[in-house]
Simulated assay, not measured.
Amino acid sequence: MAYRQVLLLAVAVAVAVACLAPLASAKQWVVGDEGGWRAKFNETGWANGKTFLVGDSLLFVYPKESHTVVKVGKDAFAACDLGANLQLGNWTGGNDVVQLDKPGKAWFICNKPNHCLNGMKLAVDVAVAVAPAPPPSAAPLTGYTVGGAVVAVACAVFAAALAL
């Protein structure tokens, strides 16, 4: 009985590690780096050259009495529309984490008067993460990826252990 419990625990840990490994590669970007989310932010070109992926997050750090973070659509971003629909996202805490949960453009502004007009706005392109292809010599023969095969074996062992 103790053997089955140890086996079950080992398999459960292996499955959890295999399933959670892709999440470990997500990155949290501190918007504006050391300067944080601030006036004239857009003049720095902070997002230039960065690759934002689905699963990453943006950390907006700012004095909560002075600024906000509002996720807006393309037109509201271009016009600095302070009355934009806040249902896309509205943060006021000063230490706000925003998940990048889908590919495409994401637009953010500060909706304090004149802040957006003075460059406190951010647009990011969010891409889908693509796993690197294995080297030709390591290509699996069955068409499954090595990681997928490990998960499949772990699941099969787990199911067999439960059946015991």
Rank of each mutant, 00 (worst) to 15 (best):
L23M: 13
Q28L: 13
W29A: 05
V30F: 08
V30W: 04
D33T: 06
G35C: 06
G35L: 13
G36H: 04
A39V: 08
K40E: 12
G45M: 11
W46C: 03
A47Q: 12
G49M: 09
T51Y: 01
F52N: 01
G55D: 03
S57Y: 04
S57H: 03
S57V: 06
S57G: 09
L58G: 02
L59I: 09
F60H: 00
F60D: 00
K64T: 11
E65D: 10
H67K: 08
H67W: 07
V69D: 02
V69K: 06
V70L: 11
G73A: 10
A79N: 13
A84Q: 01
L86W: 01
L86F: 10
L88K: 09
G89T: 02
G89D: 05
W91Q: 04
G93D: 14
G94N: 13
N95P: 01
N95S: 09
N95G: 04
D96Q: 08
D96H: 05
V97E: 09
V98D: 00
V98N: 02
Q99S: 15
Q99F: 03
Q99E: 12
L100V: 04
D101P: 00
K102R: 11
G104A: 07
G104Q: 07
I109W: 02
N111W: 08
K112C: 07
P113T: 13
P113R: 12
P113F: 11
C116E: 03
L117E: 14
K121C: 06
K121R: 14
A123W: 03
V126H: 05
V126I: 07
V128Y: 05
V130N: 11
V130I: 15
P132W: 02
P134A: 10
P134E: 04
